[in-house]
């Protein structure tokens, strides 16, 4: 025991270090290079020109870390989808009700009828939505016809608990205004009918809920962390790039435009041929020729070939510049400075 006590405990105390000299001030950080515009922002702008951008957009990030743009479903689309679902499950419930009603007519009890009908209605409509949203990857027959999907708002997998929560909340959303309506109808009194007033406020609130948030979520979506998106199918068209070019352009000429103009040109070139398209292309061709100072003669029948060549050359030029970090959003942006 003594030896243990006598032994030095731990290492001897270190000699105190001299104070550190103050650090020299850090040199100012170089300014960050300008951020590349998001491709989706670019696409959005081009879409706006052609007026095919109806829906609001949001970005979700997949578990792999890639941001993907989703289009939020319109009110009309959701209403249409719900109406279809409503019609289907009313029919379904009616089919189940029929034998019940037959029994009731035999026995002549109306209270049983109402309660059984209510119960079956409850079970059928909840199972209907939950079953289809789980089995069909977040869509019900109505949503499928319209082309809508339920997704997780943060980009994660759509969990069964979220599906169940969002559909059973519909019950609460409908129950509360409905219950108050029933209660309010019962009370008969003079003066201001406060219950009716609050009913109106409640109903307004729940009806307005999708309208007062950006993602058009109803109460169930809000609670379950889901949102409803529109999912159109897009096809991949052929590449517009020409391998063999008739016309050649100088880098000086290609500097006239940016990515936005390129995508507008692409959109025009992809239009189905018609008299109107030809006319638009002619006008565009004239404008481009003026802008880049094209002096050679250009017969009308070669307009399309010229534009496709110009598109190819411009895209090659801009894509290469982009690879070097010199993105040019549109013709108003400053051209990349020569090194």
């Amino acid at each position: 025991m003594m030896s243990v006590q006598d032994a030095p405990r731990g290492p001897p105390p270190l000699p105190s270090l001299p104070p550190l000299p103050p650090l020299p001030p850090l040199p100012p950080l170089p300014p960050l290079p300008p951020l590349l515009p998001l491709p989706s922002a670019l696409e959005e702008r081009a879409s706006r020109v052609f007026g095919d951008l109806r829906r609001q957009r949001r970005e979700i990030v997949t578990p792999e870390g890639v941001p993907v743009t989703v289009q939020i479903a319109d009110y009309g689309e959701r209403l249409a989808a719900f109406s279809i679902d409503f019609a289907i499950w009313t029919l379904l419930s009616l089919l189940i009700y029929l034998p019940v009603f037959l029994i009731i007519f035999r026995t002549g009890g109306s209270l049983i009828a109402i309660s059984i009908a209510l119960f079956i209605g409850f079970i059928v409509r909840n199972l209907y939505f939950i079953y289809f949203e789980l089995a069909w990857q977040g869509s019900t027959p109505g949503k499928r016809v319209i082309g809508l999907r339920v997704i997780d708002r943060r980009g994660g997998p759509l969990l069964p608990s979220a599906v169940i929560a969002r559909n059973l909340t519909r019950e609460v959303e409908m129950f509360i205004p409905l219950g108050i309506l029933l209660e309010g109808g019962r009370s008969v009194g003079g003066g201001v009918d406060w219950s009716q007033l609050s009913t109106a406020v409640w109903l307004l609130f729940f009806a307005a809920l999708p309208a007062i948030n950006r993602d058009r979520m109803r109460g169930g979506d809000l609670i379950a962390g889901t949102m409803v998106i529109a999912l159109p199918r897009l096809a991949l068209s052929s590449d517009l790039v020409e391998r063999a070019m008739q016309f050649t352009f100088t880098p000086q000429q290609l500097k006239a435009y940016g990515a936005f103009e390129l995508q507008v040109l692409e959109e025009l070139l992809r239009r189905p041929p018609s008299a109107e398209t030809t006319q638009v292309l002619d006008e565009v061709c004239d404008k481009i020729c003026r802008k880049i100072g094209w002096t050679d003669s250009l017969p009308r029948r070669e307009v399309t070939a010229f534009l496709r060549d110009f598109y190819t050359a411009e895209r090659a030029y801009l894509e290469r510049e982009q690879l070097f970090g010199k993105t040019r959003a549109d013709k108003y942006a400053k051209p990349a400075a020569p090194p």
């Binding site: 491709p39 578990p63 743009t69 999912l231 068209s237 895209r315 982009q322």
Partner: peptide, 23 residues
């Protein structure tokens, strides 16, 4: 900078994502 390609790929990735990460 091919707009059609970018839109197509984004749409395809989203649809496949919904299948892969669906319930």
């Amino acid at each position: 900078l091919d707009r059609n390609l970018l839109l197509y790929l984004e749409n395809l990735a989203l649809r496949a994502y919904l299948v892969v990460y669906g319930p």
